[in-house]
């Protein structure tokens, strides 16, 4: 199968040692959007969240402290760069590494918040992310064992898909869904968004959605149904 039938015309590669980044209009779009959001995070301040007070006719204003702001901004930038890398990598192993990094920094972004409900949500998300790192890397390992390569270029040129490769791809999908915290693991993750810090929360959500879209492309490359 031709990679260009998924993401559009092949534009070229960026060889960085054994890390081969490749570009199609799809990858370029995803990478540029991620870097744009990362830049906006670098230059933006946080909002002040207005909440209703219980039993009083007053509003409670919740804002982000300076130390917390610095920590969360740093982790958000790392998350943005990791997601941009995951968008253009041509190697399945690098993709899983970027994915694991995204999961770790996502937990870090909210664990700096001093709110019990948010920390509980982050803790539960962390448990899911840790458990899902096994199928994530295990899936990639099974694909390597059954095909002999983790290069997406090479995988796209394979004529058929063995049952073991399909099994590896399904494990990879479970790993990605858990690490990114999307359905069916989204319930705890949504609770994490109740805290202030809009620029940092957006990168958690954006990285999850973009990684899932990239994962769909990778799975379509690996599994040859047609």
């Amino acid at each position: 199968m031709d990679i260009s039938s998924l993401g559009g015309d092949f534009l070229g590669i960026i060889p960085l040692g054994d890390i081969v980044l490749y570009l199609t209009p799809f990858h370029l779009f995803m990478c540029v959007v991620m870097l744009l959001f990362t830049f906006l995070i670098c230059i933006s301040k946080t909002e002040t969240q207005v909440e209703a007070s219980f039993g009083k006719l007053e509003d409670t204003k919740v804002s982000v402290g300076l130390n917390e702001f610095k920590q969360r901004r740093f982790l958000s930038i790392i998350c943005g760069i990791a997601t941009a890398g995951a968008m253009i990598t041509g190697d399945l192993f690098n993709f899983t590494l970027f994915m694991a990094l995204i999961g770790i920094v996502n937990i870090g972004i909210v664990s700096a918040v001093k709110q019990t409900s948010v920390l509980n949500a982050a803790y539960q998300y962390g448990l899911i992310a840790m458990m899902c790192s096994l199928p994530l890397f295990g899936g990639a390992a099974i694909i390597l064992a059954s095909t002999g390569t983790l290069s997406l270029f090479e995988l796209s040129n394979l004529a058929t898909t063995s049952a073991m490769t399909v099994f590896g791809a399904l494990l990879l999908l479970i790993g990605i869904l858990g690490e990114s915290g999307v359905a069916p693991f989204f319930a705890t993750k949504a609770e994490m968004f109740r805290t202030p810090g809009s620029p940092f929360l957006v990168i958690i959500h954006l990285s999850s959605l973009f990684v899932v879209i990239r994962a769909i492309e990778i799975l379509l490359i690996i599994i040859k149904v047609i």
Binding site: G7, P25, F26, L206, I213, I216, E217
Partner: peptide
């Protein structure tokens, strides 16, 4: 162009 980009736009 690619439907995947439309998917990205929707995201």
């Amino acid at each position: 162009g690619s439907l995947l980009i439309m998917f990205g736009i929707y995201a």
